[in-house]
Amino acid sequence: MAVHAPAEARRHVSRLAINRLGLWLFLLSEGFLFAAIISSRYYLQGLNRPETLNQVLGLGITIVLIASSLSAYRAETSAAHGDQKGFSRNTLATIIFGALFLVGVSIEWREAFHQFPPYTGFGTIFFTMTGIHAFHVLTGLLALGVVFFLGRDGRFTKGASWGVEGTVKYWHFVDVAWVFIYPTLYLVN
């Protein structure tokens, strides 16, 4: 047999706590990735920032992503308290906010292609940084989609809500990463 579940009696730390620790370790690791990306911005471009950046859009998508964190938090809280409707509604809201964020980024990319294409100094940093972050948003959206469809039958609201919790924690992490990226790209001077 390939998969074996260790007997419950032997475990002194609950499965949930082990999962949480593992996820946090993974997020710590991802933090180093974003640290590398952000440090390369300062190494290559210093504090240089083109005046043509779409500041309104930048602030807008930042607030949209923060809003998605709130709805993700509400989805998790609802699931933990057995509120099926609240869970579904808020998960869906999170997915919509996340998709809106991606739409914002793609509008930003269209403009950026003309103002500072990827082969320019700032464009290199801009497209890499937003691209890697958008990839994380995309994986988060996939996971949220899975959680949303799996959770319609109430499996997460009946006590075993690790699936929701883990996905939502990852989603919050993506938000934290953006919170650092936003000023790095749009604001520092």
Binding site: P118, Y119, G123, T124, F127
Partner: peptide, 14 residues
């Protein structure tokens, strides 16, 4: 693959 300029000093890379 994507033609960025991380290491192309002509474009401000290093």
């Amino acid at each position: 693959v994507a033609g960025t300029s991380f290491f192309n000093s002509a474009q401000g890379g290093a």
